[in-house]
Every structure is written in structure tokens, then in C-alpha cells.
Design a protein around this nucleic acid. Structure first.
Length: 479
DNA sequence: ATAGGGTTAG
């Protein structure tokens, strides 16, 4: 089979570290090479030649091309990334944006962005608003506020106008750096060119001013938005309430909350609003006050969720009042806001964090015994903790227990490698082989960091077939 | 867009 032949060419060290290559990845190798080939030639308007590569673009392919370019063709890599982002039926995910930033090295060399703009101009490429949007999103990932602003400034040269979302992105970058004067200036600029700030613009500014403690200015934004006919909503009030809880007085906060409750509708408090108050009260060491807010929340008809419950549970555990946590869980579940699975998982996590491992483990086992499904964090943390305590067999058994209950999907894939390396190092060859087979069956990859050690041990155990399979290579005579 | 345990494979 052609697909397998490709894998033979790989060097043996690479083969051991990258297990279970899917056919999808193998089949995109050649299209990434094709793209890269065109980029290397570096003839003008490379986008035209890229378009001749007839292949379905996917994130794996984009990733590979960027990787190839990352050694000495960063600028071409950037140009490819921008081109790819404009193709129909493909959109860069935010993960791809952050990968691209890393591989292109935008952070260290933001000048590449401007070089590419110059290339487009020189080569007479068609430059549209989407190119600028992709560049701005790269700036967002790399947290480059000044560069984003410069890119915005380049648009008129191509007879393009930024829209509200583009301004919002740049404003957000400045507010996150606490550069509020620049953010304000940008909002004023929007007004002057007749691009209207929206709710998101105002909320960014409001939050920014609150974060740096400029209350007067925050209030100014609040007034300004009303003047412009943008009525403050639940989110706006929640931001203000959050600020009041961090810097202001609790009395003022309660006044605002009351106002929100009376007004209701688009301004009525929601789960996030109440949860942030409960969190603050917990941080202040006032769990009883926090419980009163919980009552109030339910009276208003707002259901607490896992975030609400977990902040209370955390506080109870911190004070050693685990019984209170159990009482709270029964109550919340009875009202239908969150499930036992969610709540007990939060409790397990809190107990592990408090280093009450025995209690966490007991609860976790009780959950399994009673058909309550633990979430991913709880499973992962408990098993990791057991590995850390050199109780790798217990960890493995627990993993099997989770599997038997059909909750396998809630274990983080990294945990398997951790367990496997532990079993190997403790010479539990039978269990190691069992776990390795389970991983193969489930298609779980070896974590590269542990792969070499695991394969070394499995070889020592004499299970050649398993080694080959885990290495992602079929045990073939030609090999 | 406002809260938040640890994150997918790229």
C-alpha cells in the first residue's frame, strides 16, 4: 500500500517518537510539499501558483507547511498562512493562529507583517479586507497592540476601511495592556469616521478602566454609551459589579445588584453575575454571606452551575468543612442546577488540591461504585496523583474501573502515557502490555515525551509486535 | 462580551 510506503522513508528515531500516524496525515504530506515547493521558488504573486495545487486544505496541511517554512522562509510562511485563511471551505481556528504565531515567529519579528504588505503592493496583488483581518488576528494572538494599530493605518492606502470588529480587536489589545488612553482615542477615531462603537467596544473600555482603577473614566464610558442609545445590559452591570467587589464596598455592590433584580430583563442578573459575587465573598472568607447570595440567586430564578458550586466547595474544603460541601451539593442537585457528577467532581478536585488524597480517592471510588460519572479533571487529577505517589498499579486499576463503567472518554490522553511509563519502570510487564493494547484499541497516542522510554521497556519485555504497533508502524517483513 | 478547575489534534 502506498500509504505505508511513505512511512518507511522516515528515520528510525522519528518513527519511534511519532506513533499512529493517521492515513489523513499521511495523505496530506504531499500537498504540503507541493505548497512548500511553490513558496521556495519565490516568484512574484505566489498566491496564483498556490491556487493551482488542487487539494483540500486542512489544519494538518497548514501546520506542516508552516513548519517547513519556519526554518528559513518565515515571510513566505506568513504569506501562505494569509492565503490559506482566505480559501473557501477553510477557516483558521484560534489554535492555528497561535501555532502560526509561534512557527512564523511573529512576536520576535512583527516587521514580517509589513514586509508582506509591501510585497502585495509591489507585486500588484489584490488586497482585500480579509487579508487585514487575518493579520489583525495574528496580532491578537501575539498580543501586539502597536503593530495592530499600524496595520489598521495601512488600510486606507489600499482604499479599504476598517469595520467595528477590527477596531474592537485593536481596542481590546490596548485595554489588555492597560493603555486606556490609546483605547479611548481609538474609540473617538471610530466616531469621527462614522464607524459606530457597539456593545463590545463599550464593554472592553469599561472593563479596561475598571481593571486599572479609573472609576471616573469607567463611569464616563457608562454614561457615554447611554447617550449614544446603547442601553447597558447584564454584562455591563456585571463588569461594574465585579469592579465594585474588588475595589469598592460590598454595600454599593448590593445596591447595584438590587437595581439589576428590580429592572430585570436585559439588565437582570444572570448566573455569571451571581457567581462572581459568590466567588468574591468566598475569597474574602465569608462563605456564610456567599450562601445568602446563593439563596437570593435561586429566589430570583437563576440556577447555580458547576462554576458557582465549585467556588463554594473550594472555600468549604479550605476550612475543613467537607460536610458543608456535601450538604450544598445535595441542595443544588435537588434544585436541578447541576448534576452529582459535576459537583462531586469539583469536590474531588478540591480535595486533591488540599492534598487530602485519601478522602479524594474514597469519594472518587464511591462515585464509580454508585454510577456517578466523574468529569475529565477529576479522573485525570486522581490518577495523576496516584502515579505521583508511586501507586501506579492503583492508578492503573482505577483507570480500568473507569473504563468498565464506560467513562473512558473522561480520562485525559496524557494520563495513559504517564501510567504506561510508570508500569514499565516498575516492571509490571503484563499490565503494561494490557494498557498498551487498550491504548491501541482506543487510538490513544503515546505522549512524545515518554515514548522513547516506554518503547525501550516494551522491547525489553520482548513484545516486538506491540512495540511496532505503538510506534505506529505495521510489523512488516520489509521493515 | 461578564465567572472558571485542566484541555482536545492540528
Amino acid at each position: 500500500m502506498a500509504l505505508f510506503r511513505i512511512s518507511y522513508v522516515r528515520s528510525s528515531s522519528f518513527r519511534l517518537k511519532i506513533p499512529a500516524l493517521s492515513t489523513l496525515q499521511l495523505s496530506t504530506v504531499s500537498s504540503a510539499d507541493l505548497f512548500y515547493g511553490h513558496l521556495q521558488k519565490n516568484i512574484g504573486n505566489v498566491e496564483k501558483t498556490l491556487a493551482t495545487v488542487k487539494t483540500k486544505l486542512d489544519s494538518g496541511c497548514v501546520n506542516q507547511v508552516l513548519h517547513k517554512c519556519s526554518f528559513e522562509l518565515s515571510q513566505m510562511g506568513l504569506r501562505f498562512f494569509i492565503w490559506a485563511g482566505r480559501q473557501p471551505n477553510y477557516r483558521h481556528s484560534s489554535f492555528m493562529y497561535s501555532r502560526a504565531c509561534e512557527m512564523i515567529g511573529i512576536h520576535g519579528r512583527p516587521g514580517l507583517l509589513f514586509n508582506v504588505i509591501e510585497d502585495y503592493r509591489r507585486e500588484g496583488c489584490l488586497v482585500d479586507i480579509r487579508i487585514f483581518k487575518i493579520m489583525l488576528n495574528l496580532c491578537k494572538e501575539a498580543k501586539l497592540a502597536k503593530e495592530a494599530l499600524s496595520i489598521l493605518g495601512k488600510m486606507p492606502e489600499f482604499h479599504l476601511r476598517a469595520d467595528t470588529t477590527m477596531y474592537n480587536l485593536v481596542i481590546r489589545l490596548f485595554t489588555e495592556k492597560g493603555e486606556m488612553d490609546m483605547a479611548m482615542e481609538l474609540m473617538k477615531e471610530m466616531d469621527s469616521v462614522d464607524i459606530h462603537p457597539n456593545m463590545i467596544t463599550y464593554i472592553s473600555l469599561l472593563k479596561g478602566f475598571c481593571d486599572v482603577g479609573r472609576w471616573e473614566d469607567a463611569y464616563g464610558v457608562f454614561e457615554a454609551m447611554k447617550e449614544k442609545g446603547c442601553e447597558p445590559n447584564t454584562v455591563v452591570y456585571s463588569v461594574l459589579l465585579n469592579a465594585a467587589s474588588r475595589h469598592g464596598t460590598m454595600e454599593k455592590l448590593m445596591e447595584v445588584l438590587e437595581e439589576m433584580e428590580k429592572h430585570g430583563g436585559t439588565r437582570g442578573p444572570n448566573t455569571v453575575t451571581y457567581t462572581s459575587i459568590i466567588q468574591r465573598l468566598c475569597e474574602l472568607g465569608q462563605p456564610q454571606e456567599a450562601l445568602k447570595i446563593l439563596d437570593r440567586m435561586e429566589e430570583y430564578g437563576c440556577a447555580p452551575n458547576r462554576v458557582t458550586v465549585s467556588s463554594l466547595i473550594k472555600e468549604f474544603c479550605k476550612n475543613g468543612h467537607v460536610e458543608e460541601a456535601y450538604k450544598l451539593i445535595d441542595r443544588v442537585v435537588a434544585r436541578g442546577g447541576a448534576s452529582y457528577g459535576d459537583c462531586y467532581s469539583s469536590l474531588v478536585v478540591s480535595l486533591v488540591k488540599m492534598k487530602k488524597i485519601a478522602e479524594a480517592e474514597e469519594l472518587f471510588r464511591n462515585m464509580l461504585a454508585n454510577g456517578v460519572k466523574p468529569d475529565g479533571v477529576a479522573c485525570t487529577l486522581v490518577i495523576k496523583e496516584l502515579c505521583l505517589e508511586e501507586r501506579v498499579l492503583d492508578g492503573f486499576n482505577l483507570c480500568n474501573e473507569v473504563d468498565r463503567n464506560g467513562y473512558l472518554s473522561s480520562i485525559d490522553s496524557d494520563v495513559y502515557s504517564l501510567l504506561l511509563v510508570g508500569l514499565c519502570e516498575h516492571d509490571h510487564s503484563v499490565d503494561a502490555a494490557k494498557l498498551a493494547r487498550l491504548m491501541l484499541k482506543k487510538g490513544i497516542r503515546l505522549k512524545p515525551y515518554y515514548a522513547e522510554s516506554i518503547i525501550k521497556h516494551l522491547k525489553k519485555f520482548g513484545d516486538q509486535e506491540l512495540v511496532m504497533n505503538l510506534g505506529g508502524i505495521r510489523n512488516d517483513k520489509q521493515n
